[in-house]
């Protein structure tokens, strides 16, 4: 079990780092495109399309990593105001709601993927990209989010007796 948890942590961390590297790649490609254009050597016609897909997929796939770090913005008024025991319960409620949302995204996200697969849907700008491949990032992200929300729920439970510090999971 601990090995599985370790691997999961590595996996979501991998997607976070990957997104960082992808942003670096986009910067490099845009600079190359500007240089090519201004020296009259052509351009990278697929650059906009590629960047758009990467920004989208990167965001969804890195979202579980950001959740792990507690970096998704949220309003923590109620947590601060409530007594600690209640705050912990509220935290668990939030994690359960998050789990439910992730499961809906997982189920219907998979439906979107299989629908695009069955109907051979293709996005066409400069490339022909099968849409199922594009949409795949959503259910994959949702699955990881569902796992992470479950882990958060259990983590809160296991520290209820200790001095659980709500602020360590605050906004930003």
């Amino acid at each position: 079990m601990t090995i599985a948890l370790r691997l999961f942590e590595k996996l979501i961390g991998f997607f976070g780092i990957l997104f960082g590297l992808v942003i670096g790649l986009i910067i490099a490609l845009i600079c190359i495109d500007v240089a090519l254009r201004d020296f009259g050597l052509g351009s990278l016609p697929w650059l906009i399309e590629l960047s758009e897909y990467l920004m989208y997929a990167g965001t969804f796939l890195a979202a579980p990593w950001v959740l792990r770090q507690g970096n998704h913005v949220r309003v923590d008024m109620l947590f601060v105001a409530l007594p600690k025991r209640l705050a912990v319960r509220l935290e668990q409620l939030v994690d359960l709601v998050g789990l439910g949302i992730s499961l809906v995204l997982l189920y219907y996200g998979s439906a979107v993927v299989s629908d695009a697969w069955r109907n051979n849907m293709v996005a066409y700008k400069t490339w022909y990209v099968p849409e199922w491949l594009l949409f795949l990032a959503i259910p994959v992200s949702a699955l990881m989010l569902a796992i992470e929300f479950t882990l958060r729920f259990m983590r809160v439970q296991s520290v209820v007796r200790d001095s659980y510090d709500v602020t360590d999971r605050a906004t930003l």
Binding site: R37, S43, P45, L47, I48, E49
Partner: peptide, 13 residues
């Protein structure tokens, strides 16, 4: 894009 490139131009997105 296809016609611009066919006529020798550079297509920019």
């Amino acid at each position: 894009r296809p016609m611009v490139e066919k006529l020798g131009g550079t297509g920019i997105n």
